[in-house]
Design a protein around this nucleic acid. Sequence first.
DNA 1: TGATTGTTTGGAACCGTTTCCACCAAAATT
DNA 2: AATTTTGGTGGAAACGGTTCCAAACAATCA
Lengths: 357, 357
Amino acid sequence: MSPVTIRDVAKAAGVGVGTVSRVINQHPSVRASTRQKVEDAIATLDYSPNPIARQLSLGKTLSIAVVAPFFIRPSSVERLQGVETVLSEANYDLVLFNVETQARRDTLFRILPRGDSFDGILIVTLSPQDVEADLLLQVQVPVVLVDAHHPRLNRVVIDDVAGGHMATQHLIDLGHSRIAYISDILESPFRHEGASARRFQGYRQALAAASIPYRHEYYRQDRHGVLQAERLAHQLLELPAPPTAIFTASDTQAIGVLRAAEQRGIAIPKQLSVIGFDDIEIAEYMHLTTIHQPLFTSGVEGAQRLLELIRQPSVPPGRIEEFHLPLRLVQRQTTAPPPASAIDIVDDGLDADLINY
Amino acid sequence: MSPVTIRDVAKAAGVGVGTVSRVINQHPSVRASTRQKVEDAIATLDYSPNPIARQLSLGKTLSIAVVAPFFIRPSSVERLQGVETVLSEANYDLVLFNVETQARRDTLFRILPRGDSFDGILIVTLSPQDVEADLLLQVQVPVVLVDAHHPRLNRVVIDDVAGGHMATQHLIDLGHSRIAYISDILESPFRHEGASARRFQGYRQALAAASIPYRHEYYRQDRHGVLQAERLAHQLLELPAPPTAIFTASDTQAIGVLRAAEQRGIAIPKQLSVIGFDDIEIAEYMHLTTIHQPLFTSGVEGAQRLLELIRQPSVPPGRIEEFHLPLRLVQRQTTAPPPASAIDIVDDGLDADLINY
DNA sequence: TGATTGTTTGGAACCGTTTCCACCAAAATT
DNA sequence: AATTTTGGTGGAAACGGTTCCAAACAATCA
């Protein structure tokens, strides 16, 4: 590419390479006349410094890695938007690592801590296991988790339990008692992502507080996605005593429920209430009632914290921080009181096996 | 971070640095016993090569820049997904450059050709001006355009004129003659993105072929976005003789139209037909009739072509290629024949000023 | 056995920056 | 006038790899 180096410039300007470097980096101790000469040379040679060489010399890369399940979690994209805003402002390059499969996830957690390719790492919606966190901590690379947890890593999160509670309480307040919960898989054998599990806890707590027995049959899980949720919803709606309301762990899954209802000719919200979680952009267009979490903001906060971590040399392990973002119920048009017909059949008790945590 | 260098390994293994390098890079001419010694040393020292240094030495960065208006164009995200698939497969890093403003756009086009930071550049939905293309060509950096045009750059595109024609023809076939077109701004002073303008051409051609006079009042433009399109739709629907069908240059804008109709209590598709363009994921959920273009595939094709360009040293300027992707009408539930009441008022001729291209 | 060919190997040179140190001239101090 | 301080400057060394060249060694052939 541009084969003109700092030495060419130095020669052309009749100065040493150090001086050219100083001019480029705005170092103060360069005489104005010299600076001028160098700038002229730079201009006529059309020189621009090789960033790779600079990185090697500096030991900095000015780029940070962002790891997330972008394409299977629309919420990641909205978070990414916040991240991008902050990073581009700070002149950091954003290197994208998408995760769709467990294999890729594991590879990345193994690869990322190696090498000095990134000044920092932002991990979204993927919680590291202990060994993985160890690796990260060992290499001393600044890391921030967004919507993910690990006790020894900085993170920005929401109170998922409270969120689950809030959603369920909203349905209870409307008069529902047959409330189902759909989520992605709560415990994959090795690493628990956790958020859906905690929302499940909130769901259980709200039910318990209202003295509504927990029904195991009202809880379904599958891999995250519209189609999977659609299938689960069909299962629920085929139950002898189908739920009058469904709470899903994400808006994406809520859309699956909406589709299932539509296919069965079930009127929303008249015959079935649906509440999601996240408040992704599409939720508004679909009039979905949901729990709003600050997605964009989470990206901003995460990125800012990461930059802070990078900038300050940081005392040894630094204090680990957990930053909480607020939640808010956004009521739209997919929740309403249950149909009169259903209220009668309250508490038929069938299959209502209580399970303790 | 990992402060152990190739020289440490060489010392530990009792060999020269060249040998270690050869082991790392799978160079064949290393005796098996030597290789073993080196591998042992690497293992015990827990060495991993510094990618930056390797890049400097190699003159390659193994990373490619992707420039696009990701967050204001959902279609970009779906294209990005295709790009990501190919690049991660090929072990290239994907560096994201988001464009939301004209200033950022211009900066990037100025910055990107500098330096040797990227092995290739993929530009999505942004057509370079001539001077910008010059810069790119001058620096000899491999470039591929996706959903963007420039005669001297490789690109993967669709036939926008045909697409515009297809959408309009569909409405005409349904019996509409009062057909409006909503798009983003066709000609910003300095650089035309073009796609919407070409779809407009297709729209005009289809109308002309059906002997339907073009009405200037039926064509509206504003910045791309749901809210802007919503406003434009309101304007159209307030016209003395409102359109019975609206064709929008993107699905995003179609959603705006749908919202406007909803606010006015206008039934879709009974009283108003709406057809979009792109077939982004959300289009299906909203039952939007639209022109499908292969978004994911466009990303895949673009990335693959870029990798080819990078791999082969390439004859001087290489032959410029324009790769076309197919289009397809996807009929869902937002288009139907016009209401009987409207058919009567055919061709009141008012304001039907014909404009020639 | 000696000459020839082929395979491994060590290490200097290089990639293009930044930074540090030494040096110099001019200015300030005595 | 001699000495110290200061601001500017040149250039070597360092960053951590890859590659090339020459040398060492092994194997083959006559």
